[in-house]
Simulated scan of single mutants.
Amino acid sequence: MPKGRTMLSTTTRSRSTALAALAAGAFASAALAAPAAARTVLFSGHVDAVAARIDGGRLISTLKDSTGGRTVWRDPSTVTIRVVSKARTTVPAGLGVVGRKGSPVWLIPQVQRSGVIWAGWNTEAVGSAQVRGAIRWTVSRVSGPGKLVVFQSGSFGEADVLFNSGARLPQGISIPLGTHAHGNWAFTKPGTYTVAYRLSARSVSGTPLGDSSTLTFSVG
């Protein structure tokens, strides 16, 4: 009888262990299947994709979303900027840095266009009492199916190229304080692009400040 009780106890323990393992597996599967936090998708209206703020003495890289009629400051890494099919056009003559004349390009324009996102950059929230000199915007990596070229159109039609992912990175520009500007963002192929960048500056006391983030664009 003691032997029988021992065998029954062992069997019970085995079943309990199996059930616990099954439950753990089910819990792990449920955890893996849980959806990721929803991203904010912006597809039309005004947004400053790269915007600087000072918070607690730290330089913060943010995204200033004005698409809904009021300003919302967002973490760029939680946002997808949607470049809709309406943004598709062709490369004009004289813009070889983007592509051959007549080749397709998806363009966020420097001048606002109805139904297409209008993306700029902004340092208006940072003052000379917080930062000494300009803020440096450096693009360190661009991944995607094609090339990204950010440029501004000059008074005589010439292109002032700010960033060109077809050339060696990193590339950077200095943005004076109080700036709110827009440019052309040209994507040569449809698909998803990620742009890793950093904002850097010096505090009025000379302390280096900086913050890195990533922009995501869904094109086409």
Rank of each mutant, 00 (worst) to 15 (best):
I60K: 13
S61F: 04
T62V: 15
L63G: 04
L63H: 11
K64T: 04
K64H: 12
D65N: 13
T67Y: 01
G69E: 05
G69D: 07
G69C: 08
W73V: 09
D75I: 04
D75G: 11
D75Q: 08
P76V: 05
P76Q: 14
T78V: 11
V79F: 04
V79E: 07
T80V: 15
T80G: 04
I81K: 10
R82T: 13
R82W: 05
R82V: 15
R82L: 08
R82H: 11
V84Q: 08
V84T: 14
K86F: 02
K86E: 15
K86N: 12
A87Q: 07
A87Y: 09
A87F: 09
G94S: 04
L95G: 11
L95R: 07
G96T: 13
G96A: 13
G96F: 15
V97P: 09
V98C: 02
V98K: 03
G99R: 10
G99I: 06
G99F: 00
R100H: 13
G102V: 05
G102S: 06
S103T: 08
S103E: 09
V105T: 00
W106H: 02
I108Y: 00
P109D: 02
P109Y: 02
Q110P: 00
Q112M: 14
Q112K: 08
R113W: 04
S114W: 04
G115M: 07
G115P: 10
V116W: 00
A119F: 03
G120L: 02
W121K: 07
N122S: 14
N122T: 12
N122L: 12
N122G: 07
A125H: 08
V126N: 03
V126F: 06
V126P: 01
S128T: 10
A129F: 13
Q130L: 08
Q130T: 10
V131P: 04
V131Q: 05
I135F: 02
I135E: 01
